[in-house]
Design a protein around this nucleic acid. Structure first.
Ligand SMILES: [Zn+2]
Ligand SMILES: [Zn+2]
Ligand SMILES: [Zn+2]
Ligand SMILES: [Zn+2]
Lengths: 130, 130
DNA sequence: TAACGCTGTGTAATAATATAACATTTATAA
DNA sequence: TTATAAATGTTATATTATTACACAGCGTTA
């Protein structure tokens, strides 16, 4: 059972926008799009983004500074994300691979570090761009 | 046999600084430090950083926007990097795990994408910070 | 030699990404 | 009710990174 978060107005507006896009969006392009809905400042966008990331509704693509909706609820609240990124067309896809997830979840280094999160980004060329 | 790159003056100055630090450095802190050596502008730093990343002498920690020296020459020229990051003290360590590397290298998605690079970042608490 | 491409340099300006600080409001809980 | 946490709105500012332009050095090759 997943805890159902109640989103605020700003959070809903921004999540809605991100979910309607199948590709990641940049914070300032989100800002531009939501100005008509009364969200006027970067901070309002970043606050909503941070919250949405925290509760796992969206993920940040770190190498691109963009935000994408989580289409399935399988990533344990933003704690384990894997993406493939086409370096030509910038198409991004979230990957859910059971075997890979297992390996990553079970990984132990030799430093006794306790992990609670990981992010993996694969780069290459998608079918269209090869 | 690895191709021996000849670095320019600026590239050497900046690589030297990064190699002397066991922890990642930010571009503008590098800029501050190399001003005494005649490097005056952000672009001079970013150009050197980009080149050094490209040839695998340093890596970018994407989630932190910082740069760390590659201590061993095992990552195939910046194409396969794994880091552990302490979310408390921000200590960063480059990980080389044979088994993990194999899994990542061999990973195939179901979209026919051709990967040539990946970056994995583990987050957690280091021994000191637990 | 000269012409060319390629890489790097130096400088100024600016773009793009993200947060600090403050006053106020709203939601939740004791 | 009180208090306490979370979110808002606003302004200003910090941080990260690139564009644009003029030019220098070097190796290739015509
Ligand atoms: Zn997800
Ligand atoms: Zn593509
Ligand atoms: Zn390395
Ligand atoms: Zn630590």
């Amino acid at each position: 059972m997943q805890k159902q978060e109640t989103l605020t107005k700003n959070q809903k507006i921004i999540l809605d926008l991100i979910e309607k896009s199948d590709q990641p969006l940049k914070a300032y392009s989100i800002l531009f799009d939501v100005k008509k809905k009364g969200i006027n400042a970067p901070l309002q966008v970043y606050r909503a983004l941070n919250k949405l990331v925290k509760i796992g509704k969206i993920h940040k693509i770190e190498s691109r500074n963009t935000f994408i909706a989580c289409k399935n609820s399988k990533c344990q609240i933003a704690k384990a994300t894997v993406f493939s990124i086409c370096e030509s067309c910038e198409d991004v896809t979230e990957i859910h691979d059971h075997k890979l997830s297992e390996h990553l979840r079970d990984f132990k280094d030799n430093k006794g570090m306790k992990y609670n999160k990981y992010n993996l980004e694969f780069f290459g060329l998608c079918k269209k761009c090869v």
